[in-house]
Nucleic acid binder design. Sequence first.
DNA 1: TACTAAGCGAGACGGTACGTCGAGTCTTTGG
DNA 2: CCAAAGACTCGACGTACCGTCTCGCTTAGTA
Lengths: 201, 201, 201, 201
Amino acid sequence: MQADLKPPAGRPLDNRVTSALLDAALSEVSEHGLEKTTVAEIAARAHTSKQAIYRRFSDKTELVAAALLEAFRLSVPPPPQRASVAQDLQQCLQYYTALLHQTRLGPALRSLVPHRREQRLVAVLDEVEASQRLMLRQVLIATPFESDMETRIDLLLGLIYFRILLCGIDIRNDDIERAIYLVLGLIAPREPMPPAGLPGL
Amino acid sequence: MQADLKPPAGRPLDNRVTSALLDAALSEVSEHGLEKTTVAEIAARAHTSKQAIYRRFSDKTELVAAALLEAFRLSVPPPPQRASVAQDLQQCLQYYTALLHQTRLGPALRSLVPHRREQRLVAVLDEVEASQRLMLRQVLIATPFESDMETRIDLLLGLIYFRILLCGIDIRNDDIERAIYLVLGLIAPREPMPPAGLPGL
Amino acid sequence: MQADLKPPAGRPLDNRVTSALLDAALSEVSEHGLEKTTVAEIAARAHTSKQAIYRRFSDKTELVAAALLEAFRLSVPPPPQRASVAQDLQQCLQYYTALLHQTRLGPALRSLVPHRREQRLVAVLDEVEASQRLMLRQVLIATPFESDMETRIDLLLGLIYFRILLCGIDIRNDDIERAIYLVLGLIAPREPMPPAGLPGL
Amino acid sequence: MQADLKPPAGRPLDNRVTSALLDAALSEVSEHGLEKTTVAEIAARAHTSKQAIYRRFSDKTELVAAALLEAFRLSVPPPPQRASVAQDLQQCLQYYTALLHQTRLGPALRSLVPHRREQRLVAVLDEVEASQRLMLRQVLIATPFESDMETRIDLLLGLIYFRILLCGIDIRNDDIERAIYLVLGLIAPREPMPPAGLPGL
DNA sequence: TACTAAGCGAGACGGTACGTCGAGTCTTTGG
DNA sequence: CCAAAGACTCGACGTACCGTCTCGCTTAGTA
């Protein structure tokens, strides 16, 4: 009647090995890209063996997917302040920008964009995107900008992914700011910044 | 006194072979993805030999890059009508959408997005993007929307790349239309379509 | 205090694979010759892979050399009877003749004669020859024919190698017998022997 | 009504090119062995092109065969003095020894020994051997050593081929001398050489 | 405490694709 | 039509990586 009738006899998997593998996988993929990353190299970097990998993951793809998902889930975005839509968006997008730009997640994610035909990797990208979309919805919902909300989200997310993942170039904060003002249909705050700036909505 | 004193001795490369190779490479990559594409298979599909490939391209990556670039250059977008900015943008974006969606270029380009660390492939993506950006600039220049032009372009291109290349999902025409209206800061034409729609602006 | 403190970590080379490779190599070479023998074909015949070969031998040449040496070492000539020098020689030479003629060693050895500039193959031929020379010395030593022993051995070995390896033609037993009598300076048992043998010329 | 109705239209083959090819082939084969010799390299060495080769010879093997045969035919052995069988043999064998040892023929011939399964190369080796055998027969015929003549010839030729082609080692003159005495059934002239040297016996 | 099942690092296993090289043929330009 | 250069097809070479299997060992958790 129990779930775990099997205290699965024998030595259990060592969590330290698992963590080392996920970390090594993330580093390797973010440094060399998915294709040039070698299973043997990941194992070596984690000071373990290929067999330790295949005991945990069905193949290289699964390992990499797990490594990226793990890394993404560990990164918790700051909650919206609910003060100003523009400010909340700015904070949110800057957070994701930094995540893609300054951590190993950026190169790694970019590395597996073209493998959307691999079902296992789709799940990772989908989860990342869904999470970001959810966050943005929380910012926009119940505001005057709720109309065409999904299109606005597409535009903003698209900007980030496009510039960072595809073009691989930096996005400055004022790029984000300008894009937000455009997408929200506000008067863009040209330099000098109007002191009354960023009205509640 | 002449530049080409040397009609470079020996049998010249056969252009028919080169074309067949580029075409075969494009087909293979768009069907199976970059990784699962085999050099031998490309050669076979072009009814030639691996050696013919390596005489022209230093490796598989170079061949694929050339094939995609060739295909993109051969696709000439329709010139803007200069009637209405919104209409021109719509036409332009729909053209690129169709290019990515309905030709072999779409899957192929997506297939090499993650190889931006490969210098040879960067050139392809860069040229494609630069070409599109140029087209959009021609539409927006000398209009009221010239302010923040680059940001508007980023938003629109980002939308397309994001939805098609990364998410792999379709973009309907009204998605594009809505995005254009948002980015131009117009009043989106909600259903029913206002008769005065798409003012010249 | 022990020599082998290191049981060399990891899975050891499988001797069954090694044997299968040596056997397959010997067969292929003896059937098709060294040049027309394919590494892939050897691997296939041994029901294994090319990599298994290159894990053991640095290249095709090394594999073939090992295969021939192995085959030669496994063939043990019968010991001399020490009854009559002529009979012992006959038995010995007939043994080698049969070895070259009726086993896979013959075609195989012939196949690598011209590769004496390959250091690895020289070793094989040298060991074979040294072994035969040693055997013949054991027959001749401490007999009236010890004088000019090396020259006699050269003549007899030369005959076999010349006729079998180079000319590729058979040697009948009475050829051997006649040569032995000549080299030993005996009166060949001709039917009937001319009585007034060998005047000045 | 004529034999050669065809003054074979067009430009005739240039004999200087042919000679250069034969010479280059001989050099290359004697230096690198048959297998490591490249058709392109032969052509380059002869300052011509591969096509010039294939216009004259059906393939590499044929070219090499022709080169060796040419070289062998150009070397005319000195006629026997008919003074003493032993002396004549000595002169004859020394001549062949030198031919194999000090000219490009030696390495080249050795290089194609193992290709006896190639019909075209057999012809070369056969002609060489037949020529040598004929010479030796002329020495031995009509002498007391005519009995077992073929066996004696086999022994002497075998010695040379064995020592030079297979073992690749030198044969000193006294080796030859000793072998001749053994094969002729004479009393070998031990050092010190008896002043009356080489009596007809 | 001793047994036992399973994890551990290391590395060989069969397989597939890579990029290279040589053979023999074909196709240029230039006598 | 020859000569030189070099591209052509074909097939073998030796290498690299994948995912699996096997070695000798260590480490839980049960007996």
